[in-house]
Simulated scan of single mutants.
Amino acid sequence: MIAKKWRWPIYHIAAAGGAILMIYPVIWLLMSSFKKSETIFTTANSLIPDKWIWTNYSDGWAGIGGHSFGTYITNTLVLVVLATIGAVLSSALVAFGFGRLNFRGKKFWFAIMMVTLMLPHDVTLVPQYILFSKLHWLNSIKPIVIPAYFGAPFFIFLMVQFIRTLPGELDEAATIDGCGKFRLFYRIILPLIIPAMATAAIFSFYWRWEDLIGPLLYLNKPSMYTVSMALKMYLDAETLSNWGAMFAMSIVSLIPVFAIFFFFQKHIVEGISTSGLK
């Protein structure tokens, strides 16, 4: 048995080592963003650049295809914010129905919804593309944003579990006071499931920020490209790829992700734990 006085330093040393191991790829990415493209993947090159190439950031921000990288960030923010708002609000409304209302076929439809969680996304790509093509939605953000307003199965399940932890007496008291179903939802339930909604919003932001398949399928104009598509444009199989600029803009694209995580990190644990009322 390890002596009690040694457990604390051993634990923290192991935790620090694990943290360094996990964050090393990000450190490597950051250091590589200051290197020349031709020296990034050379085995003899060290982690720290021999010569700091600051122009990678200015060259990367200048963009590609006649548009600056700021344009791609703006496009991504618009798409992500609109889709996230739709996914969170619609999922909360559907979760309220499954968690609080009684209707015919409730268990059946909930099971169907859960089955969609196990359906691979790749299976639905072709049918969705055909449908959106017939609706004349191609080359717009509609195929990416509008489906989000019909709920997301994972978020619905997360919020249903959270709603089930709330006392049923709240519904009875609100009904006695004259609240209808919709008023019960937005006056009583909605404020109490803010932690779960915040968790859903964070996950939605991450998933849509890094999404490449959706924009690649439906966005054809360079002026509408997202961050993930812009980063791919720095790589060219026929000519010399600008790795330095791509890594520099990869670091820039990580800033919103880290900011969202550190600002809302407490909501992730609070929402997933489904702790209910304090």
Rank of each mutant, 00 (worst) to 15 (best):
S46P: 05
F96D: 04
G60E: 00
A148C: 15
A237S: 08
T226K: 07
L254Q: 01
L216I: 00
A245N: 02
V123G: 02
G86Y: 15
G271A: 00
M22L: 12
M118K: 11
G276Y: 03
F34I: 15
A44Q: 11
T274G: 08
K134Q: 10
V123D: 00
P49C: 15
F96C: 05
Y72T: 07
E172Y: 06
T43M: 12
A248T: 04
S58D: 05
T116M: 06
W207N: 10
K278D: 02
K142G: 00
H12G: 05
M31Y: 09
A248P: 01
S133T: 08
G276L: 03
E38D: 15
A14H: 05
F263E: 04
L277G: 01
L119A: 13
S223I: 13
F262D: 07
I23C: 05
F103P: 05
A14F: 05
T55G: 05
Y218W: 08
Y57I: 03
S140D: 00
S273Q: 08
F258C: 11
R187H: 15
T274Y: 03
M224H: 12
Y129W: 06
E172I: 06
M118E: 13
S58E: 04
N56V: 03
Y24N: 07
I193L: 07
S250H: 11
D59H: 10
L101M: 15
G63H: 00
L254H: 03
P143I: 06
T239C: 03
L77G: 14
S223F: 12
G70V: 11
F96E: 04
L93G: 10
